[in-house]
């Protein structure tokens, strides 16, 4: 009985303590998200919103070939970015966890996170400068005498306004998001398991495949999710690198919300995109669970 009341008292204190942050999140995050959900079922009137429940927005969104093309493109870009980011990040996380002495680990992590915190817009724009028709790569080749008639490359590369260009830029922006979860998962692995693997006659590579990789899977899954979900909603990169020719979902949401001022339609697009992303994320997590269980 005494422990019961003590637990209740502790719970009460906990609620009091978290209340300010929780109320803030409820008012400024949960309520607006629910409002978007509600708006997606309303009708757009001129300068107002008609509060009549209708599925018209969703029907319009999903029957619109432009929306489907944009959603598909966003998903393709997100898959490319996720594969690129997580694939290149894994060796870095592995190096940080196994190849760097403990005293230097936080310095390396610091080095990796610095670019992430520095002006996002300017960084994206610099990729445009790097990959532009007269950009750093092309003018660099020209300066080195490798580009022009009869040289190694005839014409300057056209890199901007392509999906790989968007993917590389986004991969650069989301790199730390992929490295850190994998690093944390690798750090948790008991080092004696490796010795056991080696002692039992496994090679380095098979030890990695059969011990390290499966044990670091939770980190990989976390990395995939924290890259995949926000990338779908990126507005700046398609705008700057894609030159407006390869819009993604966020650009469509922005167009409906601000210049076109059709907020119910914008809400329906936003909800559709987020539901699609969530479903894909859940399927992915489910598949990984089945696969990892099957491996055992």
């Amino acid at each position: 009985m005494a422990t019961y009341t003590a637990a209740r008292r502790e719970a009460k204190q906990g609620y009091v303590m978290i209340a300010p942050t929780l109320i803030y999140a409820l008012v400024l995050l949960a309520a607006p998200l629910l409002t978007i959900l509600a708006f997606s079922f309303f009708k757009d009137g001129y300068l107002t919103v008609i509060r009549e429940v209708t599925l018209a927005n969703y029907i319009a969104v999903w029957t619109d070939p432009i929306f489907r093309a944009i959603l598909l493109r966003s998903l393709c870009v997100a898959v490319m970015v996720t594969a690129l980011t997580v694939g290149t990040a894994y060796p870095i996380a592995y190096f940080l966890s196994f190849g760097v002495s403990p005293g230097k680990k936080s310095f390396w992590l610091f080095l990796i996170t610095i670019p992430f915190w520095t002006s996002y817009l300017v960084r994206v724009f610099l990729w445009k400068v790097i990959m532009g028709y007269n950009g750093v790569i092309n003018s660099g080749f020209e300066m080195l005498g490798l580009m022009g008639d009869g040289r190694l490359f005839e014409d300057p590369f056209r890199m901007l306004s392509t999906m790989p260009a968007i993917a590389v830029t986004l991969a650069h922006c989301y790199a730390p998001f992929a490295i850190l979860p994998i690093f944390v998962a690798l750090e948790k692995i008991d080092r004696s398991l490796h010795e056991a693997g080696r002692d039992l006659g496994e090679s380095r590579w098979t030890t990695f495949l059969r011990v390290t990789l499966p044990l670091s899977m939770p980190g990989v899954v976390a990395a995939v999710l924290v890259v995949f979900i926000p990338v779908i909603g990126d507005y700046v990169t398609p705008e700057l690198i894609g030159g407006g020719k390869l819009p993604m979902v966020a650009n469509m949401i922005q167009a409906q919300m601000l210049p076109l001022d059709n907020k119910p339609m914008g809400s329906a697009i936003a909800v559709s995109a987020m539901v699609t992303v969530t479903v894909i994320a859940l399927i992915f997590v489910g598949l990984v669970r089945i696969f990892v269980k099957g491996a055992k």
Binding site: L26, T35, A270
Partner: peptide, 19 residues
């Protein structure tokens, strides 16, 4: 809920707050 903005695209936060 409190940590959700870490993964939620910022455009969702921006547009829903705007509405």
């Amino acid at each position: 809920l409190i940590m959700l903005p870490l993964v939620l695209p910022e455009i969702m936060v921006g547009s829903s707050l705007l509405i």
